[in-house]
Design a binder for these strands. Structure first.
Length: 586
RNA sequence: CGGGAUGUAGCGCAGCUUGGUUAGCGCGCCUCGUUCGGGACGAGGAGGCCGCCGGUUCGAAUCCGGCCAUCCCGACCA
């Protein structure tokens, strides 16, 4: 294939588009791979699909290799299956809903669990048919609250989603492992760096879930890693529990007048001024911060929950949310405070909390709050705090919860060193669904004893368009795009940098030779352009090997430049073809 | 959803405060000529519902009101 810039449908931009912020996205727009069509929607120009299709092909090959079979559902679906699974309601505002001319509800699918489940239910009814893995590569729709970062968080995007079906947990584990191996092979081939992080704490019945994150500062997901190789989603970090402390010599708890100290900061400052410690200053970590939230349950109803964390940390809503699922964490409003007079805003303390207390309000604390720890905390009276309140002596929480934010330097749960917070792009997610959808949609098969058993499922996703973006973001440099060869739109970019007909003819001949050898070529055969423009465009487009046919042609050489390293070498014209073919196949 | 901003040619922007010729600049595009190894130069061109609706006014890109859209920060995000 020879792409001639003289007629390729592309126009490179000299200025950065105003609405692009990430370097890779900016370069893709400037180089003419994609354009914004609307918020979270993108048009692909000819260069874009050349990259996209190579990514897609690698994903497809690895799925086929592991034995998954490709199917294809509509992106537009009727309401009914989602009604049956409960997700018509559950999915909320993120679901694109629309009506047909008869007023019937439809949706643009954000993911296809229901359809896969129902399809298998329609066709299969025996354990002999399993295990089975099906996949599709499909446009997905999510009405994101805030689309951003170009292809990374779009409202229309392409995802490979697959689902495994097994009769038992051992089968599911095997299918999961197959997908995990296939994903490793896929991302290795794509040239994407990744870390595999545990995405759940295991509090949800032991089902496994792991995310493939591509580490980059522009990523939207936060994860942690340790020097010893531990890596996890922040939601999954388990806090090591300290040993209990002796509290024999801790004075009796005493309430003090602490006016105008509704925040940890004001409290610490006040305590240091009026109740100085003998040994050191009071610190935020000496205080116990009690945060009250409302839990809303799917089946209806709201109950308050108070979470106690050391005062130097905030409650991480995402971590808390992961712990209380399927309940939803909601803010505690002023009306809620009015309805629960035991809770004094800014001065909440454990003495009035607990399921066995008068208030009956559930009280969970950070795992660091162990027996014997002494705290400065709210006295449940406006302007008052209690000092030397000892856990296990003066109060007993209902339990612990992993809700405190994870901080840089916290110890890894497996003892592999201090955690480092890092950012990444979620490029893949593998998940043991279990029987959620099989139960909801009655997917059962007969086992070898003739008994009906509910199938257990896994779901596995790779963001294909997002992977393109992730590659761009992690390879782009100050000159432009810099594609890995296996996904580049072409192998060689031939620049005719001369002014005479001789360089033009030599460039044509070289391009034709490469094409005949099966090497894809971008040929800059545009007329009347200064060499500088051609060089800039070649670098912006990001084809891995650039050949300059120019002033050195009179010496019988062309220049071969590696886009990534910038290294140039002179190659005799007579050897250029063989040299380039070797470079592209190495 | 909270906060902040923006909407003027394909792209990037000025003009608006203080209303008044034919709405301007750079890039890109067309023609001619000169250039030709790091986004060349000259001359001449094409291209605009100034986001939409309404109001004020003799007159609105400019002032006022409403709406819509988009972007950024945050919240949210299997």
């Amino acid at each position: 294939m020879i792409l001639r810039l003289s007629n390729l449908f592309v126009r490179t931009l000299r200025d950065d588009p105003a609405d692009a912020e990430l370097p890779g996205h900016t370069a893709m727009v400037r180089a003419g791979y994609i354009r914004r069509a609307g918020s979270g929607m993108h048009t692909w120009l000819p260069l874009g699909p050349l990259v996209y299709r190579k990514v897609e092909a690698i994903v497809r090959e690895e799925m086929d290799r592991m034995g998954a079979q490709e199917v294809h559902f509509p992106a537009l679906l009727p309401r009914e299956p989602y009604e049956l699974s409960g997700r018509w309601e559950e999915y909320g505002a993120t679901l694109f809903r629309l009506q047909d001319r008869r007023g019937n509800d439809h949706l643009l699918a954000p993911t296809h669990e229901e359809m896969f489940t129902l399809l298998v239910k329609d066709l299969y009814s025996s354990y002999k048919d399993l295990p089975l893995s099906l996949y599709q590569i499909q446009i997905k729709y999510r009405d994101e609250a805030r689309p951003r970062a170009g292809l990374l968080r779009a409202r229309e995007f392409v995802m490979k989603d697959s689902y495994s079906f097994d009769v038992d947990d051992e089968g599911l584990e095997a299918s999961y492992q197959q997908h995990r191996d296939a994903y490793i092979a896929t991302f290795d081939r794509l040239g994407l760096h990744y870390v595999i992080v545990s995405a759940m704490s295991g509090a949800m019945g032991g089902s496994r879930s792991e995310e493939f994150l591509c580490p980059t500062p522009v990523g939207e997901d936060t994860f942690v890693r340790s020097p010893g190789g531990y890596a996890a989603n922040v939601e999954a970090v388990v806090t090591p529990v300290p040993d209990p402390l002796s509290y024999d010599d801790v004075p009796v708890a005493h309430v003090e007048d602490t006016p105008d100290t509704p925040t940890i900061e004001t409290l610490v400052a006040f305590a240091n001024e009026h109740f100085p410690r003998g040994d050191r200053h009071w610190e935020a970590a000496d205080t116990l911060k009690n945060v009250v939230v409302m839990l809303r349950y799917l089946e209806g109803g709201r109950t308050p929950l108070v979470v106690g964390v050391p005062g130097d940390r905030d409650v991480d809503t995402k971590r808390l949310q992961a712990q209380v699922e399927p309940a939803v964490v909601e803010p505690f409003t002023d009306e809620d405070f009015a309805a629960h007079p035991a809770l004094v805003k800014g001065y909440i303390g454990p003495q009035v909390l607990g399921e066995d207390s008068a208030s009956g309000i559930r009280y969970l604390v950070d795992p660091r709050v162990v027996e014997g720890t002494r705290w400065v905390t709210g006295a449940n009276r406006h302007g008052h705090h209690v000092f030397d309140l000892v856990c296990g002596r003066d109060f007993t929480p209902d339990g612990t919860v992993e809700a405190a934010e994870v901080l840089d330097g916290d110890p890894a749960p497996d003892g592999s060193g201090p955690l480092e917070l890092a950012r990444g792009i979620e490029i893949g997610h593998i998940f043991q669904l279990g029987r959620k959808y099989a139960d909801a949609l009655a997917l059962q098969v007969l086992d070898q004893h003739g008994k009906l058993v509910t199938v257990t499922m896994g779901s596995y996703g790779i963001g294909v368009s997002r992977a393109v973006a992730a590659i761009a973001e992690t390879t782009v440099d100050e000159l432009g795009l810099c594609w890995p060869r296996q996904v580049a739109p072409a192998d060689v970019h031939v620049v005719n940098a001369g002014k005479g007909e001789d360089t033009g003819a030599a460039a044509e001949e070289l391009a034709a030779g490469l094409d005949a050898a099966g090497v894809d070529v971008v040929l800059d055969d545009r007329a009347k352009l200064s060499p500088g423009v051609r060089f800039k465009d070649a670098e912006l487009l990001g084809v891995p090997t650039i050949v300059i046919v120019g002033k050195r042609l009179v010496d019988g050489v062309v220049e071969v430049k590696d886009r990534r390293t910038g290294e140039r070498e002179d190659v005799a014209v007579a050897e250029a073809l063989d040299h380039l073919i070797a470079v592209c196949r190495s």
